[in-house]
């Protein structure tokens, strides 16, 4: 596109317009060239505002990494455009690199054979951080990511969880406006994942007195998304099939919440007590102690259901499960196919 402003008065962190990337997979054989075109990203139009935390999800090969590479200036779009922090990523790659931090879960940007703290020192020089600012920022990250114990160890000898914390420190050292994470929790154990999520949540909300940091996160792990990202963008074979919050996604595919109630005394039938509410109820055991109630979120609250039940029977225990996002996304894929 011509006439684009190079440095932006725009207040959007990411703004893509019918962004498309095609790969020509040419095979030059003896019989000449046969080209097949793969459209990895197809007419993606999204905007992300400052401070948002967006989960970018989709199956393998859905086009997530390709999108990220176009946003960061690694790949040139085939057609359409994207502005990141108001900049054209291909034309202003170096300026943009000062304002974004990127973590690729499966590749390291640390120096393999050097101690972690040496990597942080080199990155400080690469980003031309003044010594005092570098020192302050480094100390913050060392403390919050708990790096002190392995700062002196060569990166190749770090565990995956330790390395990932190091990668985050590397990506956040220059205090970028936008943090892009490509599969950040892949391969981590439960505890490491949890710590990482807590940290990312704080970053997003503006840790260390800084402004909120915009986050874009691709992942396979629906827990990541559920915990970190109020907004979801779901892509399927390069196309955006959903953009909105969790509740909207659940409503879209019609997934339900599940309330399981254990009663003090057996009741054969709860349907009468719940008459008029948009719920389905089922007795789960023969005795009539356990009942399962399903309902769509947004149509009725769990509280309203409980009020009705407790009017006819004493409740001993209960559990409420939210719709499984993974299941929801699977349904979304099925419906968009």
């Amino acid at each position: 596109m011509t006439g684009e402003k190079s440095t932006g008065a725009t207040d959007l962190v990411i703004e893509s317009r019918v962004l498309t990337k095609e790969f020509r997979r040419g095979r030059s054989g003896r019989r000449g060239r046969t080209d097949s075109v793969l459209r990895a990203v197809d007419s993606l139009t999204v905007t992300i505002r400052p401070g948002e935390a967006v989960g970018y999800i989709g199956a393998n090969g859905a086009g997530k990494s390709t999108t990220i590479k176009m946003i960061t200036g690694i790949l040139k779009p085939s057609t359409g455009s994207v502005l990141t922090c108001g900049l054209d990523p291909m034309r202003h790659r170096r300026d943009l690199a000062r304002r974004i931090g990127v973590v690729f879960g499966q590749r390291s940007q640390l120096w393999w054979d050097l101690p972690l703290q040496e990597s942080l020192r080199i990155l400080g020089a690469i980003h031309a951080l003044p010594p005092t600012r570098w020192q302050r920022r480094r100390d913050q990250l060392v403390e919050r990511l708990d790096l002190a114990a392995f700062l002196d160890r060569p990166v190749r000898r770090l565990s995956l969880g330790e390395r990932m914390r190091g990668e985050l420190a590397a990506a956040l050292l220059h205090e970028p406006e936008l943090l892009i994470l490509d599969e950040p929790t892949v391969g981590l154990d439960v505890l490491s994942k949890e710590r990482l999520r807590v940290f990312l949540r704080e970053e997003n909300q503006g840790a260390d007195g800084g402004p909120p940091r915009t986050m874009l996160l691709t992942t396979h792990d629906m827990d990541d998304v559920q915990r970190l990202c109020p907004r979801l963008i779901v892509v399927d074979t390069g196309r955006c099939v959903y953009d909105g919050d969790h509740a909207g996604l659940v409503a879209r595919v019609g997934a339900n919440r599940l309330l399981v109630i254990d009663l003090v005394d057996p009741v054969q039938e709860l349907a009468g007590a719940l008459a008029g509410l948009p719920v389905a109820v089922e007795r789960t055991d023969d005795a009539g102690l356990r009942h399962t109630i399903t309902f769509a979120p947004g149509e009725v609250s769990a509280g309203a259901v409980l009020d009705r039940v407790s009017a006819v029977a004493a409740i001993h225990d209960l559990s409420l499960s939210e719709p499984d996002i993974e299941e929801v996304v699977r349904r979304l894929y099925a419906s968009s196919a």
Partner: peptide, 11 residues
């Protein structure tokens, strides 16, 4: 992917 690492640095 070393090249991609280089591409996200401001040099």
């Amino acid at each position: 992917g070393t090249l991609e690492t280089f591409l996200i640095r401001p040099l």
